[in-house]
Design a protein around this nucleic acid. Structure first.
Lengths: 335, 335
DNA sequence: CTGAAAGCGCTTACAG
DNA sequence: CTGAAAGCGCTTACAG
């Protein structure tokens, strides 16, 4: 690729008849430059089509004006039609756009991917790192934080390292859902839980357990991994083991959609025979058959808040160690 | 943020008792370094936890090892549960990961967003630019190409600038779909087209028109913009204007899903009263009610091919100006 | 308010 | 095979 044509600060300075320092000041919006000089510089910039070389700027400012969003997941999971990660990306983009920063997206499902993330982020190529999800006690976030890189996680980190995070009120949402099932007369309430190595899986299951227990009901649990296939398999298991169930709380909309289909195939009517409640309130929920009652979590807002926290941190400010966003029960036809 | 702790090449050189040049060679895998010196350097790197500063490297190499994926769309469109963009992102990520490059994601739905993209990409912060979609005769890709920045587009650019692109065989796919409808006895075949400022919208409509015309049938057209809401509205229009229709080819799965629901609400049975065929074959298609017959396009493969082309271009190689991937009719229950 | 100069952390001809 | 030196394109104290 050519470097040839691209004008540098130097060229602008010559053209405007000023020093490089002055051009730099004007380009960076310093107000201490005389009006007419500023105009001359702007003219030269326009005439030459000057655009600052960001690598050079980064080298001296030690800032890159970009941040990384790490998704420690399989590409399959991230870009199935699960709306979770896209929602996070969208929230992050919005805040970043407002702050005029760039988004570097990093998938890190494989060991090689994690290696790349570590290398890249510790290489100071970004001003901070956002983790879109976390599995088990992933050491990477704490490692980065230790190297002085600002880090914010989605979901409370399970390693207890005290990193800042944004999360939602899983337990409150689930218990409202289960209470709704109980309140409408259901007594044999099962759950399809999320993965047990993720805080979302753990907490939603805990919410279910404590709510059924509080009502004196027994728990019936099958476990999925938030994918549709796992939801269908879990629903089949539940039907086999607890053929008398009359309701199921499913820890994600996608798994719930699969559960609805499995129930239909098994000849169970929803909600007449079995009531179903999901979790997420992604767009899919309104288009299932029947439309899905679900616990809404503000996915996009999670992305936005994480980003705000990170930018504050990167700017040297201090932030609250945890932000917990509310959840809400959305009633449709499935329960 | 601190610069303090981070070791530089200089530090490694001192520790290993060699020059910076030598360290640089070892770090970059040059083979012309004596075995024992190389080992000493590696040891020093490990002991110090040295990671190259990428901005400094970029400044001299004029490469950034990252590429931008631009989505000139509303965030709404990109991250609704339309699987199109996520599929592209996924394909791009995979190829980039293999090439050890970074992905910078840029939404550019708004004028301000487009401005940012122009500034950022012309600022040489990336080695090349991928356009995930294009509207009307967008001048941005040609502008970048003119500045010497490698560009590859998804879909044939409508400005006729001759930029390299990757696309799918829209017309072939659609005509197979419409022929299938005709072959199964449908005669009053409508279409819900995509946006008329996008090549995918234009070509799929053209494929529909020429196939019904070839069969001596008349066209019934409503236009959507690939979102579900637009699909529902278009379906209502079609029912109002052509209550006798017995089939509809819908230019995207998401619009088709909405059309299915609208038909159901209108009391039409699918496929008995009205046959429906979509386009995309995203995961959603298998989960609609009834499961959707659709034209599959290899979305992820589009992303991969675009990326390969771009990397070749960025490496100074030459590429084919156009790559057209095949489409395939997937039969399910809706037609 | 403006400029000369140093320096950010690398890579790469060029000698030897 | 290795090192001294120049240079990539910026920003920022420091003087004046």
């Amino acid at each position: 690729m050519r470097t040839a044509g691209r004008p540098t600060l130097e060229a602008v300075a010559r053209r405007a008849g000023v020093s490089r320092a002055t051009v730099s000041r004007v380009v960076n919006g310093s107000t201490t430059v005389a009006e007419e000089i500023r105009e001359a510089v702007h003219r030269a910039v326009a005439e030459l089509g000057y655009v600052p070389n960001l690598a050079a700027r980064s080298l001296v400012t030690q800032r890159t004006d970009s941040i990384a969003l790490v998704m420690p997941e399989d590409a399959n999971r991230v870009f199935s039609d699960d709306q979770f990660f896209p929602g996070i990306i969208r929230g992050v983009s919005q805040e970043l756009e407002a702050a005029d920063k760039q988004l570097v997206l990093m998938l890190a499902g494989s060991p090689a991917g994690r290696e790349r993330v570590a290398r890249y982020t510790t290489g100071r190529h970004v001003d901070g790192v956002l983790f879109a999800s976390l599995h088990a006690a992933d050491p990477l976030p704490a490692l980065l934080a230790q190297l002085g890189i600002p880090v914010v996680c989605n979901g409370r980190p399970l390693d207890g390292a005290g990193l800042p995070y944004v999360d939602v009120d899983h337990v409150g949402g689930v218990s409202r859902a289960v209470d709704h099932l109980i309140g409408t007369g259901r007594r044999r309430i099962a759950t399809i839980a999320g993965p047990s190595d993720m805080v979302a899986g753990i907490e939603r299951l805990a919410g279910y357990r404590q709510t059924v227990a509080a009502a004196g009901l027994s728990a019936r649990v099958a476990v999925g991994d938030f994918t549709r296939e796992s939801g269908a398999a879990a629903m089949r298991d539940l039907l086999a083991q607890h053929p008398d169930l009359d309701a199921v709380f499913v820890a994600s909309d996608l798994m719930a959609q699969a559960a609805l289909r499995t129930l239909r195939e098994a000849g169970r009517r929803v909600p007449d025979d079995v009531a179903v409640i999901g979790f997420d309130d992604t767009e899919t929920a309104a288009y299932t058959e029947p439309p899905l009652t679900t616990v809404r979590q503000p996915i996009q807002e999670i992305g936005r808040q994480m980003t705000r926290q990170l930018l504050r941190l990167a700017a040297g400010g201090s932030i609250e160690p945890a932000l917990v966003l509310p959840t809400e029960l959305i009633l449709r036809d499935s329960a």
